[in-house]
């Protein structure tokens, strides 16, 4: 599992995740994901185009970070899910909690709304 974080214009962070968000994958990136996104109160968008598997550990990580960011008046949005990943996000009602968008532009608009 790989994670790349980039500071964008307009007080926005973009995180790019590549690989599998199963238990070993989440254990590998969660510390950096959490410490990079929660402090500072900046909005963030997460590119999951190259995430080919997600399970409950990955969903929990996103919910926990989104909840902590909300406490800091910041928002999180994901974009670009593959069809199977999207089905799992849908079946867990994740979309009701965190925006899941088609692309980066839509995700940036969602966190700024």
């Amino acid at each position: 599992m790989q994670i790349e974080i980039k500071e964008m214009e307009g007080d926005l962070r973009r995180v790019t995740l590549t690989g599998r968000l199963d238990t070993p994958g989440v254990l590998g990136i969660e510390p950096r994901f959490v410490t990079s996104l929660i402090p500072g109160g900046k909005n963030a968008i997460v590119d999951i185009t190259n995430v080919d598997f997600i399970a409950s550990m990955g969903i929990r990580m996103f919910i926990s970070v989104a909840r902590n960011m909300k406490d800091n008046h910041a928002k999180l949005a994901l974009y670009g899910p593959q069809p199977r990943v999207d089905e799992v996000l849908e079946s867990s009602a994740f979309r009701q909690l965190v925006p899941v968008c088609k692309d980066a532009e839509e995700a940036a608009a969602a966190v700024r709304s």
Binding site: A55, S56, I59, R60, R67, K70, V88, S91, S92, L97
Partner: peptide, 21 residues
């Protein structure tokens, strides 16, 4: 139950929910 808000999202049971689905 499926969560409706970030605040009400439970930390437990999601894995078994996904297994059942």
């Amino acid at each position: 139950e499926l969560p409706r808000t970030l605040e009400s999202a439970s930390n437990g049971g999601l894995g078994l929910l996904l297994v059942s689905k």
